[in-house]
Design a protein around this nucleic acid. Sequence first.
DNA 1: CGACGATACGGAGAGGGTTTCCGATTTTGC
DNA 2: GCAAAATCGGAAACCCTCTCCGTATCGTCG
Lengths: 190, 190
Amino acid sequence: MRADAQRSYDRILAVAGDVFVEQGTNASMNEIAKRAGVGAGTLYRHFPDREHLLDVLLKDWVAQIQAAVDQTLAAGLPPRELLITWFEAVVRHISVHRGGAARLTAALGNTASMVDKWQGLATANQSVLRHLEARGAIRGGADTIQICRLVGGVAAVADAGGLLRDDTRDLLALIADGLLVAPAAALRCP
Amino acid sequence: MRADAQRSYDRILAVAGDVFVEQGTNASMNEIAKRAGVGAGTLYRHFPDREHLLDVLLKDWVAQIQAAVDQTLAAGLPPRELLITWFEAVVRHISVHRGGAARLTAALGNTASMVDKWQGLATANQSVLRHLEARGAIRGGADTIQICRLVGGVAAVADAGGLLRDDTRDLLALIADGLLVAPAAALRCP
DNA sequence: CGACGATACGGAGAGGGTTTCCGATTTTGC
DNA sequence: GCAAAATCGGAAACCCTCTCCGTATCGTCG
C-alpha cells in the first residue's frame, strides 16, 4: 500500500472508532470522512461499506478480550463471582459502541466470513469455563458458543435498552446460576 | 374519525404488518405507503413515525401472549419443560418480524411511553412463574422483568443471527436451569 | 338536496444519508 | 525529474424520511 493510502486508512479507522463510540454504529459515514479529513471516495475505497469498517474495529476490540481473561482469572474469586465478573467484562468489551454488541452477537456462529472475529471471544470464554470445570464448579453440557450468545444477548439488550449496571449484573447472575453447580441450593443446606 | 380516514388507517396497518414481516422493521415507509395505496402524507398523519407504527403492531401481537400462557399451563408439563415451552412461545411471539424482538426488548422497563406494550408480556410471565412457585420448583429472587429481558435477549439474538430452533431451545434451557431449584445439588448436602 | 366548513388526501420537495465515478493530484520507481 | 500508477476529493445520482400545502372528500345543517 502506498504511504499516503496507509495514512488515510489509519486515520479513518481511528476517527471511525471515536465516532461510533460517540454516536453508535449508525453514525453518518460522511461525518467520519469529514472528521478524518478525507473525501467520501477515499473512505469507501478502503472500506466498501459500513460493515467492513465495523468488522475491522470489532476485530481489534475483541482481540483485547484475552487480556481481560487473564486479569479476571488472576483475581482469585470464588466461582460465582468469577463467572459474573468475567461476563461483565465481556459485556463491557463488546459494548464499546452502541449497536456493536448486537452486531457481534448476531455474527456469533456464522460460519461465513467473520469466524476470526468471534473466535477470540469464544476461546477466551472457553478458558474461563475450563478453569471452573477443573474445580468441579460447573455443570456439564453447556456449549461455549451458546454461552457467548447468551452473554451477547444480555449485552445487546443492555445496550439497546440503556440498562443500568446493576440490572445487567442481575441478568448475568441468572446466567451464571444456570451454569454453576447450584450454589443457591447449596446455601440452603447448612 | 372520518370514515375514509379509518379505511386508510386500517389498510396501512395491515400492509405494514405484511411488509415488516417480509423485510424487517427497517422496511421503507414509502414502500408501505405505496402498497397501501396512500400518499406519504397520509401515512405520516396517522403514524408520526416508524416507531408509532411498530408500537401499534407490537401491541396487537403481545396481546396474543396471554392466550399462549393459558395454553402452556394447560399442557401439564413438568417444571423444566413447562418453563422452556413457555419461553419458546414468547420468543416465537415477539419475533414476528425481523428486528421486532430487539425493539420490544429494548423497551422493556422503559417507564416512558410503551408501558402497556410490555405489560402484557410481564404479567403473562408472572403467571407462569407463580404457577411454578406454588409447586416449589423455582428459586427465589428473580424479577419478572429481568427474566423477560433475558428471554427477549435470546429472541433478539436468535432473530438477528438466524439461529436454528434447537440452538434457541438450548439457550432457553440454560436460562430455565438458572431459575429452577436444582435437584442435583440437594444430593450433595451432608 | 345543496352547499359549506371541517377533515383528510397525495405527492412534490427539502434535507440528509449512502455510494459511485472520474478528473485532478500525489507518490513511486527509474 | 518524469511518466506511469496509485490515490484522492467531492460532485452527483439515488434513495429515504418527513413536511407542507393545494386539492378532494366527507358530513352536516339549512
